[in-house]
Simulated scan of single mutants.
Amino acid sequence: MSHPELYPIGDAARRSGLSVSAVRFYADAGVVPPTSVNDAGHRMYDIDAIARLELVRTLRELDTDLDEIRRLLGGGTTLHDLLTAHLAIVEGQERTLRARRAVLRTLIRQGATPAQADLLHKLVSMTDEEREDAVDAFWNDVGAGLDVPEGFVDRLRRMRPVLPPEPTADQLEAWIELADLVADPAFRDAVRAYLRDAYSAPEARALATEPYQDFIHDSGGPLMAELLAAHRAGESPRSPRARHAATRFLEAATALAGTPLTPEVRERMADGYLRVPELMRWIAEEEAASSAPVYGDTHGRYLALVARINGTEAEADATALPYAWIAEAVRAGEPAPGGSAR
C-alpha cells in the first residue's frame, strides 16, 4: 500500500505561499493541522493539507473570517472540492477586479467627483432585477404620451441590455454609461423627442407599424445579411447567389405594400439604392445644422451600448454598405433555371 508523500513545514510554507510562522499558527488554531509528526517532532504535510493551506491564504486575502474558514475546512472536503472552491474564489476575484477596472477607467475618463464614484460603484453592483427595472422605467417614461402606432414602444423595449455573468471590462463600461443615461431625464426627453419626430408624422407612421417593424427587425435583416454575405465573399452582383438573395429581399419588401415585384419596381428600387449615399449625406448635413435630437445621440446611442453589453455586433455603418453593388444585384433580377436573367 502506497503512502502519500509528506513535506516538512518549510516546503509546505513555500508551496502554499505562507510563512512558516503562519503555517504553525493555522496548525495551533486547529484550522490546518499537520498530516503527521515524525519521530524528530517535525510537522509533516501531505499535498491535501498544502492545498488547504493555499485555500486558507486565499480566503484570508479576501478578509474571510477565521471561524468561517474553520467551518469550511471542517466538513471533510476532498482535494477536488478544495480546488473547486479555490477556483470559484479566484474567478470571483477576477470578476471583482474587472468591475473595479471598469469603474476606475470611467472615473479617469470623466474626471468624476467622489459622489459620482459612489454612483458608479452602485451601478456596477446592481442586481439583474435592478437593471431590468431601470430599463423598464426608462421606456415607461419615453413611451408616456408618445403618439406612435400601438406596440411600437413595446418592441423598442425588447431591445434591452443583458449583462453576462462574467462581463468584460468593455461590457461593464458600456453598462455604466447606459445606466447613467437611462436615469438621466434629459436623455429620456431627447429619445422621446427623436422618436416623436421620426415616427409621429403622418408620412412616417407606417414605418412604426407592426408589419414594417417585423420586416426591419425579423425577416428583412436576415435577407439583407444573406445578400451582403455574397458581397463579402467577393461574388459578382450578377452571380446566381447575389441575384437570388436580392430577389428574396425585394419580394419581402414589396409584399409590405401589397404590390408585385415588377421590372419597373425593381428598377425604381435599384435607382433608390444608388441615391442612398447622397441622401445620407444630406441627412447628416441637416442633422448637423439642426438643434433637434438626432439618432446617434439618442436612440442610436442606446442601441449601440446595448450591442456592446450583449456582445452582439453593432449595426454596420450604413455609409459603408455597397450600395452600387446592391443596386446592380437588384437590377439584374433572379436567374432563371437555365442561368439567364428573367
Rank of each mutant, 00 (worst) to 15 (best):
G30P: 04
L274P: 03
M280E: 13
D11I: 09
L119G: 07
A246M: 07
G333N: 08
R71C: 02
F249M: 05
S219A: 08
P165F: 01
E173S: 09
E285Y: 01
P277A: 10
R14Q: 13
G221W: 11
D81C: 01
A252P: 00
P164W: 11
A13D: 03
R157M: 12
R248F: 06
A336E: 12
L62Y: 09
L181H: 03
E226A: 11
G220C: 00
I326L: 09
A324H: 03
T209V: 06
R308P: 02
D214Y: 14
V153G: 01
I326V: 15
A332N: 03
V103N: 01
S239F: 04
A88Y: 09
G41E: 12
R205H: 08
H3K: 15
M126A: 14
L181Y: 02
L87P: 03
L321C: 08
A341T: 14
S19M: 03
R131F: 05
P263V: 08
L104H: 09
R98I: 11
L123A: 08
D147W: 14
V90Y: 11
T64A: 12
E313M: 11
P337G: 12
L228E: 02
A341M: 10
A117Q: 05
E94A: 14
E226N: 00
E328F: 04
D133I: 04
A198V: 10
S21E: 15
A198D: 02
L120P: 00
L250N: 02
A246E: 03
E235K: 08
A257K: 06
E132R: 13
T319V: 10
V20K: 07
